[in-house]
């Protein structure tokens, strides 16, 4: 899709077949701070009601509007048009399927996320079901995992990862990040999670490309958490 706004060119490659569509929007109707999401919604409202995309909060909290914008995974609600070179090219996220239009199928992403047990595990079942006292943490204990807690599961890191692209069995940056987040939490007693990471398609598949950290909209730095997870695995073995 090409949108000409005085003229701004935007190409949208939608659907599983990546069909290219072009639209025209008057540049005067936009301002430099218009986001890609606002632009797409304007197109949908005024020109093509069949344009399908996923969005929710519009403020980079929910992670729903992830898509490839000018070759890079970004959140549409966070990406301003003034920061983009023209023509603007939009397509669905890579490394995941496409349901329709620009809507990604994140089922593989979330199944790997769930696989690493992303929750606190107490030392025994009784404690898990009925904690006897509050879990207190020092500032230092919180700092160990706080940065990695900001993940909004948008899937941008998964889409950017070159290892996921060649090996669909790789857990992916987000899953390993959340696994490290809970393992580094002093309130957690799960011994199984680390073993899940110490597998052929776990942390050791990571090649430290760093693409995940570059595209993360929340500054999580999943590449760092993956390397910390490797270090943790080796130290625990010793």
């Amino acid at each position: 899709m090409v949108i000409n706004v005085g003229k701004l060119v935007v190409k949208v490659l939608e659907g599983k077949e990546k069909r290219e569509k072009q639209y025209e929007v008057m540049r005067e109707e936009l301002d430099p701070y218009t986001t890609v999401l606002e632009l797409l919604l304007k197109i949908r409202e005024e020109q093509d009601p069949s344009l399908v995309l996923r969005y929710s909060c519009r403020m980079a909290l929910c992670g729903s509007c992830g898509m490839i914008i000018n070759g890079r995974p970004r959140l549409a609600c966070l990406t301003k048009m003034k920061d983009l070179d023209e023509p603007i090219r939009i397509e669905p996220l890579k490394n995941v399927g496409t349901i329709r239009g620009l809507v990604p199928d994140l089922s593989s992403f979330f199944s790997k996320y769930r696989k690493v047990r992303p929750f606190l595990v107490a030392k025994d079942e009784e404690e898990q079901e009925s904690p006897k006292s509050p879990y207190r943490q020092t500032d230092e204990e919180v700092k160990r995992y706080l940065q990695f807690n900001y993940c909004i599961q948008c899937g941008l890191c998964y889409s950017a990862c070159p290892v996921v692209s060649s090996n669909p069995n790789f857990l992916g940056p987000a899953a390993i990040n959340v696994a490290y987040r809970y393992t580094a939490d002093s309130r957690d007693s799960d011994k199984l999670r680390v073993l899940l990471l110490d597998t052929p398609n776990g942390v050791w598949s990571c090649r430290v490309a760093g693409s995940c950290s570059v595209v993360c909209p929340k500054g999580v730095d999943p590449s760092l958490s993956i390397q910390l997870a490797k270090s943790l695995i080796l130290r625990r073995k010793i």
Binding site: D198, T199, W204, K230, L234, K237
Partner: peptide, 9 residues
């Protein structure tokens, strides 16, 4: 053998 052991090797 664990993957970390193979990596160390």
């Amino acid at each position: 053998m664990r993957e970390s052991t193979l990596r160390e090797l």
